[in-house]
């Protein structure tokens, strides 16, 4: 296990080395959204309506938007989509687990620091947020979201380890519909359930600070294992043609 971690770190080194300029871009991007969120929160008098989608996107896809050109997801043959880094790993004498572990390490390095930075900035620069949450509640809020970034965010890595799409029209239409309905649900949530996702997470963080934090961490640990196992299974059956 330690050996796996050591190898995974070894594999991540070159990726991190070529990514620093992209990380600067990502830092600016998160700064921009921090500003946007502070403004939105202020303008809506401590409501967060309409901004949920952006925050969710930042916590799920943010870490992969700023990938170096040669490391973005690509179609390597007719129906195979995979991260080039996975292919590189598959040609090397390392176990599939190591390749997955490396993906997770890179994902966490390109997510946690930026998300944490954003959450700290929000608290420091938004009087509305400070007014609505005590420090305890806010720490719980931070844990809720960082954990979310793990159990929900890691799902994007399943694409990295490779998928053989069936090029059927029905699958295509179905996935478009699914995405559209998720976006619709998030967007209309404040009207259906009084509050949006972010606002509900604030309520939970305030009312049950400790419980929500512990539950989130548990979810993150379970999520981590779940996605690892899922990716491993997926690698076993994917054809990297």
């Amino acid at each position: 296990m330690r050996n796996h971690l050591f190898l995974a770190l070894h594999l991540s080194k070159p990726e991190l080395k070529v990514s620093w300029i992209n990380y600067i871009g990502q830092y600016l991007f998160y700064s921009l959204f921090t500003f946007l969120f502070i403004q939105g929160f202020q303008a809506q008098e401590s409501r967060f309506v309409g901004l949920d989608l952006f925050l969710l996107m930042l916590f799920v896809f943010g870490p992969v938007w700023f990938r170096v050109k040669g490391l973005q997801l690509q179609q390597v043959s007719g129906n195979t989509w995979v991260s080039p880094a996975t292919i590189m790993g598959l040609h090397l004498p390392v176990a599939n687990r190591v390749i997955i572990l490396k993906s997770i390490i890179i994902y966490l390095i390109s997510s946690l620091p930026f998300q944490l930075y954003m959450l700290i900035m929000l608290y420091l620069f938004s009087p509305e947020i400070r007014d609505s949450m005590s420090l305890d509640a806010y720490i719980s809020f931070v844990i809720i979201w960082l954990s979310f970034g793990i159990y929900a965010g890691l799902s994007v890595l399943t694409a990295d380890v490779g998928t053989n799409m069936n090029n059927k029209k029905s699958t295509y239409i179905l996935s478009i519909l699914l995405i559209a309905s998720i976006i619709g649900f998030i967007f209309f949530m404040p009207y259906l359930f009084t509050y949006g996702i972010v606002e509900w997470s604030i309520i939970f963080a305030k009312k049950w600070s400790l419980a929500s934090a512990i539950l989130s961490i548990m979810f993150a640990v379970i999520g981590l294992h779940y996605w690892k196992t899922k990716m491993l299974k997926q690698m076993k059956k994917t054809d990297y043609l």
């Binding site: 070159p14 070529v18 080039p84 880094a85 292919i87 790993g89």
Partner: peptide
């Protein structure tokens, strides 16, 4: 596939 972003030196290491 996967080498594009790296130099020969990095790949060797």
């Amino acid at each position: 596939i996967g080498w594009d972003a790296f130099t020969g030196e990095m790949l060797k290491k």
